[in-house]
């Protein structure tokens, strides 16, 4: 089976059951996940919250195919990532996962459009096609006309919007966001989350957000509370999550 060809037999994009992960061996072994169980659905944003060191980053790394689990069962987009070879896993990531990093990780020597085109370039898309798609999605996140700018000429919020564009340019089915607002002030962070909510809304996409920022919880469909390597509880939001479409509330930080 092709690593990209996971079948969709229900609404669950990510299913983890008693997943464990330990770093180091012997006396220096540090358990990061002690049996984490979680489901994330297509078309929904699932937030992972909890204290530092509770295993959030380890969990999204395993879901994104960056780490292998030690134990438990896992299916992401219908694929057991543990069964994939290193090469298959690399290709699977390039085709299915979009990343938004806390520190943006935009390459300063490349233009905004080139940065956005990186996931396409990694997949071998031609330059002209990659830059055309990058320009289109930059337009979607409100940065049309800034294609030739360097990242360091943009504000923090604009840089994160470039990162959002980069994460979605190859139309991934999973979007992994690591503290997407922690490097931004409250108002900018709110707008960035609006942006993420707007552009990531897709019936065939699951969004996983790691955050400490309670102010952006209204953007979540579900909030999974982690502690000590386990999911303690999952809160389903009683209201429709916010997005940047018509009727979106005012930025409370303005």
């Amino acid at each position: 089976m092709s690593p990209a060809a996971g079948t969709r037999d229900d609404d669950v994009a990510i299913r983890l059951t008693d997943v464990t992960k330990t770093f180091g061996k012997g006396d220096s072994a540090v358990p990061a996940l002690r049996g984490a169980t979680l489901e994330a659905r297509y078309g929904e944003s699932t937030f992972l919250v909890g204290p530092s060191g509770c295993g959030k980053t380890t969990l999204i790394s395993i879901v994104a195919g960056l780490l292998h689990r030690d134990g438990g069962a896992m299916s992401v987009l219908g694929t057991d990532l543990g069964s994939l070879s290193r090469g298959q896993l690399t290709r699977w990531r390039s085709e299915n996962v979009g990343f938004i990093f806390q520190a943006f990780n935009l390459i300063p020597q490349l233009t905004v459009a080139e940065n956005v085109s990186v996931p396409l370039v990694i997949r071998g898309v031609r330059r002209r096609e990659a830059l055309r798609k990058a320009a289109a999605i930059l337009d979607a996140v409100g940065l049309g006309g800034r294609e030739r700018s360097r990242p360091n000429k943009l504000s923090g919020g604009q840089q994160q919007r470039v990162a959002i564009a980069r994460s979605l340019v190859h139309d991934p089915r999973i979007l992994v966001c690591d503290e997407p607002t922690s490097a931004l002030d409250a108002s900018v962070g709110w707008k960035v989350m609006q942006q993420i909510a707007a552009v990531s809304q897709h019936p065939d996409r699951a969004v996983l957000v790691v955050t400490h920022d309670e102010r952006i919880f209204p953007f979540a469909h579900r909030i999974a509370h982690m502690d000590d390597g386990r999911i303690k509880r999952v809160d389903q939001q009683s209201h429709q999550p916010l997005h940047a479409g018509a009727g979106a509330p005012e930025d409370p930080f303005r």
Partner: peptide, 15 residues
Amino acid sequence: ATGCATRDDPLMKYF
């Protein structure tokens, strides 16, 4: 997989 014409890595080298 995206349906785009692809080739080997000149763009990565350009980057």
